[in-house]
Design a protein around this nucleic acid. Sequence first.
DNA 1: GTCTATAGCTAGATAGAC
DNA 2: GTCTATCTAGCTATAGAC
Lengths: 187, 187
Amino acid sequence: MRPQKVLDKEIVTKLVEVFRSNGYDGASLSELAEKTGLKKASLYHRFPEGKQGMAVAVLNYLGEWAEENVFNILNDETIPPAQRLLRGLDNIRVLYSDGKNACVLRAFSLGSGLELFENQIKNGMTQWIDAFKTIGKSFGLSEGKAQKYAVRTLVELQGSLVVTKGLNDLSIFDQTLKDIESKYLNK
Amino acid sequence: MRPQKVLDKEIVTKLVEVFRSNGYDGASLSELAEKTGLKKASLYHRFPEGKQGMAVAVLNYLGEWAEENVFNILNDETIPPAQRLLRGLDNIRVLYSDGKNACVLRAFSLGSGLELFENQIKNGMTQWIDAFKTIGKSFGLSEGKAQKYAVRTLVELQGSLVVTKGLNDLSIFDQTLKDIESKYLNK
DNA sequence: GTCTATAGCTAGATAGAC
DNA sequence: GTCTATCTAGCTATAGAC
């Protein structure tokens, strides 16, 4: 087999950048090709399903990253809750580059992205809520309270990314994560 | 003058629908024409600046609506704070159709929309924060606390719209507005 | 596996008749 | 003021050489 000019993982991480800053409709194959360093035809060789296949790869990649670095940590009952929370929040900072990166679930929630990826978006957000629900219960919250806290946490996270981007002010993302932290620690 | 087939205001409200559910890049002239009931060339007659001009009209229309129905009410010091808050929140429910509508400031925060309308987005969000800051002070909060509350309120509002859409669950928007309400009433 | 070249279509935008 | 017809540029996607 002829060696790949660009490794799969490298390609996907480049695709991630384009899709999450432009949304599904706004991400053009020209830019996807340019940023990955491959020609359009080569991209189609890697992703026979075309643009939609690339978007699926992006969703899967970020979903797995979040599962490994956020959900699994928040859910790991062998670690004290406070420690789990802090490590999870740290990785959330990494995932969103301290607020500079958009969330792909949100970026895909418009136009044809919403129609094509409705289920992936719903499942992704549900996983976030479930993970925060688990840690809420570890902090001693009731089922109902843990659920409510978890939804509010996702709401705050998503909202902080929107407002951080809109005002171009990273302190909003930073402050929101601190608020989430103390909400659980002083529940 | 030959009478307009479609009134200006009717056109803009149709443009609003297309832009906020598709974003700037995702809104096509074909759909904008179809939804307004005008042909593309007629749309260009009304908006000589083209698609960008239509987007500006949308931003202005929604900005004026919010100023009249939300900001001015929250800022009206002749009315008791609690009453102002409830009326403002009611109109926010109208603006977003109980969570079914996206926020155009967020929809434009991707791709070329972000580059073209960076200032309008920033100014729009700042107005929201200022209005909530004013009412926070009316509720007796200090300058600093009122600012922090206001930012968090906008974060929660935006986040609730994202998550409401992603999970297709209007109760999230509803609950968030109730939370905002009690946050101020029980400050 | 990557490339050049291009098909087929739709995008945003315009000319000119009525 | 609205329309039909059309332009150019960009889009997603594919064919076929290497």
